[in-house]
Amino acid sequence: MSEVVKVFGGTALSEKDISSGKIFLTKDSLDCAYAWDTGVAINRYLAELKKGNIIATRCRKCKRIVLPPRLFCELCFIPVNDWVYVHDSGVINTFSICHVHWDASRVKAGEDPHLPAVIEIDGASPGMGIMHLLGEVKPAKIKIGMKVKAVWRPEAERTGSITDIKYFKPI
């Protein structure tokens, strides 16, 4: 390698190069917003969340009851049109205790860390998890395999969003 590759490109800049203003930077902001069509299956999922229910779909071929609900089975590749209610409880498949926000800024001292988890929902097929948050629990007490139950927002505050469930708490 050293016989044929003698020079490596890439000029490292230091914090000082930047702060001294020696290096020219052009700054820009995307400044754009989106609104997403919910689609057919998720539309119904959200409408049921608003009513305080979790609804899933079942594939008539592989019999899997899946979350989030979908209009086709990605394994059998056939249309799905069989809707079933599942429970609002489940088991923690895995979790994290996260000290940074979405934009990588640090959670401040005194602020609670985020507690994301994959929760296998009771009544759906084994392993069928959704990503959500945990609450009303000390981070150090969280264990994989713990049983949890949804804590819903009051009906009047629900908007038809995954956040209509505030979080899941241990039972």
Binding site: W36, T94, S96, D103, H114, P116, V118, M131, I144, I162
Partner: peptide, 23 residues
């Protein structure tokens, strides 16, 4: 992250790694 069913939870990229590593 899924724009409708996951993004509302304000996920950070680290979540999926942390969840996988823990598991």
């Amino acid at each position: 992250f899924d724009s409708i069913t996951e993004r509302a939870l304000e996920p950070n990229l680290l979540w999926i790694f942390a969840l996988e590593m823990n598991r």
